[in-house]
Design a protein around this nucleic acid. Structure first.
Lengths: 213, 213
DNA sequence: GTCGCGGTACATCGAAAGATGCAGTCGCGG
DNA sequence: CCGCGACTGCATCTTTCGATGTACCGCGAC
């Protein structure tokens, strides 16, 4: 039995969804929420297998609610919306949603989608999939030249300094932020340059950038 | 009528696919190819609506063939493979495939997939979708803060110097590469720092990185 | 022409960065 | 306990950087 929580602010739509879900023998609607905060609260309380989440909701929007539910590991989230705006799609997926459906999906497909996500798989409306693919393909390939393993040779302090270098801070700035003498900052800079085989803080900053620090 | 080209090196599998496709009244198999080069050639010749493309093929693999077909705008490509290796999936999608199916997909879903892609939408096997989402979500958000327009205020020489800064070169290094006195390099650095409202070459280097220079 | 202006170029000088030596503090095995 | 090594911290000294003033050239406006 798949335990589902329905989060949708328009009661008419919510009733329709619940009706559809109840029609399936293997699906149980364990709760309903009419805004994002309720959705998160009920997810904590009821521990459903899956949350059917609308995006447009008062108090806490669906994307934020999704982020929270996923972050706490409460349930998988299947996002449901009327509009397939890129902003919504990508926002929801980044927030950790397992699926993204448009509301024009018919009852049969909705049930199938719920089962698919409950199986731990992912699902996206075909109309949206193409744009997701396009977005994905457009992503620059993560240059693997920046090897995170070299960071292992650095001490914690050195990593902190490196991070600051990545922001373009001067030694004095770093000294203030990390609360140490400028001379000490220089020591750390010098040491990490040696370990990373770099010749100046500029190269260190570039490296920090590539490593996403 | 959806005109389909089937590209698959194993003749038994290919026969099976053709059989399934022919069973649909709205789908027509206009050609078959047993390797990647044939697939591209036939796509050029026959101009199908869609190419059903296997990944493992001799002479030219499916990903490369897909890239070529898409680049020439010949047809949409639906990739079909036995293994859902990340390498295949991401490679195929980057190459411009509109869909990605596993071979364990049943006949009904295969036909539906063909129709979906032919409609201009996208389609991905549920088993693969979740990983695609994960991969997508993991991508760092491309910070748009780096505004290429600020570069317009720089002179050619200053842009050249900025580019060198992005590589982490010292003033002496830059002087050598651009064949000018170190003092001159300093002038340019100083000027571009002013124009870009930066406080050190380190920040300039970081900016150059973000701008992909 | 010649005046102004933007781009390029160089020299000087104070400020910052980087190398180096050294000291205090942990934690660990002998 | 003691020695040892790794980490952190600071001070001194040389190198590099960056701001500033100046000069030359090419080009369009006057």
């Amino acid at each position: 039995m798949i335990r589902v929580l329905v989060a949708e602010d328009q009661s008419a739509v919510r009733a329709g969804l619940v009706l559809i879900l109840r029609s399936a023998p293997d699906i149980e609607v364990v709760g309903e929420a009419s805004d994002g905060e309720q959705a998160v609260a009920q997810a904590r309380e009821l521990r459903p297998d899956l949350v059917l989440m609308d995006i447009q909701m008062p108090r806490l929007d669906g994307v934020s609610a999704t982020r929270q539910v996923v972050a706490e590991g409460l349930a998988d989230v299947l996002v449901l919306t009327t509009f397939d705006l890129d902003e919504y799609v990508f926002g929801a997926l980044r927030a950790g949603a397992s699926g993204f459906l448009l509301k024009n999906t018919d009852a049969k497909d909705l049930l199938e989608a719920v089962r698919t996500v409950a199986r731990g798989e992912g699902l996206i409306s075909p109309a949206v999939t193409r744009r997701l693919i396009a977005e994905f393909a457009a992503k620059p390939v993560r240059e693997p030249k920046a090897d995170p393993s070299v960071l292992d040779t650095l001490t914690r302090r050195e990593r902190e300094v490196l991070s600051c270098l990545g922001e373009g801070l001067s030694n004095a700035d770093i000294a203030t932020r990390l609360d140490m003498a400028e001379a000490t900052v220089k020591t750390h800079v010098s040491r990490l340059l040696g370990k990373l085989e770099l010749r100046s803080r500029v190269q260190a900053a570039v490296l920090a950038q590539e490593l996403g620090i």
